[in-house]
Design a protein around this nucleic acid. Structure first.
Length: 592
RNA sequence: GGGGCCGUAGUUCAGUUGGUUAGAACGCCUGACUGUCGAUCAGGAGGUCGCGAGUUCGAGUCUCGUCGGCCCCGCCA
């Protein structure tokens, strides 16, 4: 490079007029008038118009005729005030332009598959294939830079609180109790495998035993499960653990941190302490363990009313120990018969057999239940639920869990449709009082959080006899209906850990084989400890209002866990496999 | 493992009841042009209609399969 950059493209103003500057950047746009050539030269700060005028410099003007969009150039020249009638008020740098005296072409570019502007809607498949171009878009630049500022703020914050960042290994031991592991074959020990960590959980507990009483880490975690709009196979978490703490210490720390993050990075004031809601209550009132409490429309149990009509479905459900619950949605009486049919079909996704409804439209209410309930009875339930003219009431009958889930989902769906969610509002919430265990599809006990979560002391006597009733010392942090973190006070005594393993049907032999090192550590002077992990990507999603986690991750994977940029995963050489002692069983048809 | 939506030029899309040579805008190429900023004007190139099979005299269009992308259920301690 002959020339050396002196200034950034997007920040020049009329204060810079008459300065001699050198700008470097990408040609965003070129307008060739034959005599004059205008180029919008941009970098991550924005762009400035640079002017090639043969009367200023003949050579650079001649050279500029060949310059194309996407090329990388350096230009030297004097900042000039634009003629009054050609100022561009839409542009921060619109009052000035650079009169080019010297041009250096640093690199050419092929015509790009898409212009890296925010205006152009390009399919995500194309964006991911050329992610380096997509990342040039101002929105993506903003997101990635915010990500950096967030991690920096967290590190500063935790440092001030006396926490130390300590790295934990990525090549570690497989513990198939939780999510599916990503497995890495060992070359030195053929037929043996490492696993990529789903979280540094056990290591951070060992660090507590080691006396690093305040640990944190901004760290990648890996889970080989199917993806969603807010789930990637590798995600980053803010992982925290501390000794000699109780729930309140963690709450206060996280509240301070989130308040600081939102204040400093996006200028939003969160009110601390955050409200707390019991797990059971959340599920009964909102149909979710990560309720969005920015709006009402809570679930109401109307089983007593439902038993009064002649609707066989309700009666049968109630006889079988099920429930009938309802929600009230403002403005929903405008829904058409066709809308209702669609909702009926949609709600079966969550196991509901159907959807009953009362639309309080004028002149009179419409309902799917008119055949089974008198008009007075319908009016009464509407009144009980606080329904006003214009509202829609929706009912689901069935086993309690299913009713809660499906109505909870319906509540969210209709809230979006009828704009019940206040924009720009951030509502954090602690979810507390979780049970320690729940049952999987086959009725086996599994950890709700993870097997290292401490039961409440006063519930310990019931662990073996009535394990379903034992409460956990765990907590989730929920923001706007998204789970952004979870943690617990851990078990720090070997005896209790062994009892929990046993209740989870992990026998002593297997527990020792899988978690022997933890049990030994717990019997080596483990202090009481606990912590939390916050999902950094989801937090960012909420902060920038992204609808997909991919928009805050520089190089994300597709829904089928493929990197469209590098085409990973991919087959490896026969030689590599041999060294690892592996043989691939080929499927008759390609799976990718 | 399952359900839904989608796939046509570099990009975003249109394409009728199955019917001639598959169109538009932007982008790209060539030329003209000294105040443009979605520059303008004149001309031009660019297509395995994701792929395969079937139905048909004839398929971008219908059927089946398959690959890929997105959203969701299951899964995600």
């Amino acid at each position: 490079m002959r020339l050396k950059r002196t200034d950034l493209c997007g920040v020049l103003t009329k204060q810079d007029v008459d300065r001699e500057v050198v700008l470097a950047g990408w040609v965003k746009k070129r307008r060739d008038h034959g005599g004059l050539i205008f180029v919008d030269l941009g970098d991550r700060t924005g762009y400035s118009q640079v002017v090639f005028n043969p009367e200023v410099d003949k050579e650079s003007h001649a050279q500029a005729r060949s310059v194309r969009e996407g090329w990388v150039i350096l230009v030297k020249g004097k900042v000039a005030r634009r003629p009054e009638d050609s100022m561009n008020p839409k542009l921060g740098t619109g009052e000035i332009e650079l009169m080019v005296e010297d041009l250096e072409i640093l690199n050419v570019s092929r015509p790009l598959p898409f212009s890296p502007d925010d205006e152009i809607g390009t399919d995500e498949e194309v964006r991911l294939k050329y992610r380096y171009l997509d990342l040039r878009r101002p929105t993506m630049q903003k997101n990635i830079l915010l990500r950096y500022r967030l991690t920096r703020l967290v590190r500063d914050f935790m440092d001030k609180k006396g926490f130390v960042e300590i790295e934990t290994p990525f090549l570690t031991k497989s513990t198939p109790e939780g999510a599916r592991d990503y497995i890495v074959p060992s070359r030195v020990y053929p037929q043996e495998f490492y696993a990529l960590p789903q979280s540094p959980q056990l290591f951070k507990q060992l660090l507590m035993v080691a006396g690093f009483d305040k640990y944190f880490q901004i760290v990648k975690c890996f889970r080989d499960e199917d993806l969603r709009a807010d789930r990637q196979p590798e995600h980053t978490q803010i992982d925290i653990e501390a000794s000699f703490v109780e729930e309140e210490d963690i709450y206060r720390l996280v509240e301070d941190m989130l308040v600081s993050i939102f204040k400093n990075l996006i200028g939003v004031s969160l009110k601390a302490p955050f409200p707390r809601l019991g797990y059971k209550e959340a599920v009964e009132r909102y149909g979710s363990d990560k309720p969005d409490t920015r709006f009402g429309s809570e679930l109401v149990d109307v089983s007593v009313w439902a038993s009064g009509g002649s609707f066989e479905v309700f009666r049968k459900v109630l006889e079988d120990g099920g429930k009938v619950k309802g929600i009230k949605i403002p403005d929903a009486s405008s829904l058409s018969r066709k809308d209702m049919d669609e909702l009926c079909r949609w709600i079966t996704l969550y196991g509901a057999k159907g959807l009953s409804w009362i639309l309080l439209s004028s002149p009179g209410p419409r309902s799917s239940l008119t055949k089974f309930f008198s008009e007075g009875s319908l009016k009464r339930v509407a009144q009980d639920m606080g329904g006003k003219e214009g509202d829609g009431l929706f009912f689901v009958a069935g086993p309690g869990e299913m009713v809660n889930q499906s109505l909870g989902e319906l509540r969210l769906k209709l809230a979006k449709r009828f704009n019940l969610i206040p924009q720009g509002k951030y509502q954090p919430l602690w979810l507390v009082d979780f049970p320690l265990l729940n049952r999987d599809g086959e009725g086996n006990l599994t950890s709700l959080h993870h097997p290292f979560t401490s039961p409440r002391e006063e519930d310990l006597p019931f662990l073996e006899d009535t394990p379903d009733l034992v409460r956990a010392r765990s907590y989730d942090i929920v923001l706007n209906g998204k789970e952004i973190g979870g943690g617990s006070i851990r078990i720090h005594k070997r005896e209790i850990q062994e009892r929990v393993f046993k209740v989870l049907n992990i026998d002593l032999l297997r527990a020792r084989e899988k978690f022997g090192f933890l049990l030994d550590a717990l019997s080596s002077g483990a202090p009481p400890h606990g912590g939390i992990a916050l999902g950094l990507d989801r937090l960012l999603m909420l902060m920038v209002g992204a609808s997909s986690i991919r928009d805050v991750i520089p190089f994300p994977k597709t829904q089928k866990a493929v990197c469209l940029l590098t085409q990973a995963p991919s087959p490896v050489d026969e030689k590599q496999l041999r060294e690892l002692g592996l043989e691939v069983r080929r499927k008759s048809s390609s799976s990718k």
